[in-house]
Design a protein around this nucleic acid. Structure first.
Lengths: 195, 195
DNA sequence: TTAAAACTAGCACAGCTGTGCTATAAAGAG
DNA sequence: CTCTTTATAGCACAGCTGTGCTAGTTTTAA
């Protein structure tokens, strides 16, 4: 195994230490020293893998996107249109601990991306992909609808998903997995019924 | 005019300096010194009005809630159910520069409230009030529906509004006022049509 | 075995942080 | 006027920050 593979594995471990600090103490506390401490290494060692703090943060944020895409790629999508849409969009909701953790981290990075251009790029990229996914899986539910109706429904679902994700992060006691799924199911059912 | 009135007016001015810094540089850059610089005062003077930084931040976040409630209180709500709901919920969207600014600040504070208990209280308070408002103004659109259906629709609208607000903050080029209003109108129309 | 590459540790620097403190100026009350 | 409260300014302290740097250590290659 060439060393470069271990190297990126190590980078992933360090990025997950970022996640833990972000979740526990917030993004503003994710200093180089604190992340190194969380990962159990020295700052010099951390700096060997990431030339700067912002490089570390960009990598940590990008890792969230990669995890989500890996889960989506591993998903067995049902053949029927409505169960297919449900399966895909349910996968994006913070329904279990792993996705809750990544969702909280994502919310923190997203907020910072408002003022950090390097993170903003990643946010925009994810935004575009999610928007496209909404269009792709909602369109089959509206076979007779006009193009701009499909577009409108995609935007509505897009906003709904982001809103549910925020609620899942901010109020996990109330936005339980059952709750999130119930709202999603209700919405998809109504959309496919009117289309 | 007693001095206490000027005092809270001064606190509001300083809190708005917080807003400007948060919007320009992010919440993590809103240090005591930076806010004082933005407001054109010394740190000692700032500290005379706010005994600690967290007191300043709590006040600045609470001021966002107060501004929103002032706007809602000043709103002339139409008599008809659907226009009434539209007027209220449109008021909550970041449709103009003022609301965009406050919305961005709110998003930043909300994200930090994930790890700051003092801000979390305010976030929860706002969450509860917004949820109640959704119930109040959505229920008349569904006169024949069961209670849990009304509840479900309120939750769906609640998530949609938060999602639209996030999109308005993160992607103002695409989430224009027209776009946000179109999605809101489409949703309210469909809810009231099926109810 | 030897040389090079990769890794780890930790210190040093300059700069920013929140907060406590004192000193000065302004304003209002008696 | 004087006295007290309010307001403002700015310094000092201890502590954390990102990053550059050097010195060891381990691993890999030849």
């Amino acid at each position: 195994m060439p060393k470069v593979v271990d190297s990126i594995a190590r980078r992933r471990e360090l990025a997950q230490a970022v996640w833990r600090v972000v979740r526990r103490d917030g993004l503003e506390r994710a200093s180089v020293r604190e992340v190194a401490r969380e990962a159990g290494v020295s700052t010099g060692s951390l700096r060997h893998y990431f030339g700067s703090q912002s490089e570390l943060m960009v990598f940590a944020m990008r890792l969230v996107i990669e995890h989500i895409e890996e889960r989506l790629a591993a998903l067995e999508v049902p053949a029927d249109r409505l169960p297919a849409a449900r399966a895909v969009f349910a996968e994006l909701l913070p329904l279990d601990e792993e996705r809750q953790a990544e969702n909280e981290v994502w919310v923190a990075f997203t907020a910072r991306s408002l003022v950090e251009p390097e993170l903003r790029e990643l946010s925009n990229e994810a935004y575009g992909r999610l928007r496209a996914a909404c269009r792709k899986w909602v369109a089959p539910l509206l076979p007779e609808a006009a193009a701009d109706t499909v577009e409108m429904e995609a935007e509505r679902l897009f906003a709904l998903l982001d809103g549910l994700a925020v609620h899942g992060a901010m109020h996990p006691e109330q936005a339980t997995a059952d709750h999130l799924l119930a709202v999603l199911d209700h919405h998809l059912h109504q959309v496919s019924a009117t289309g």
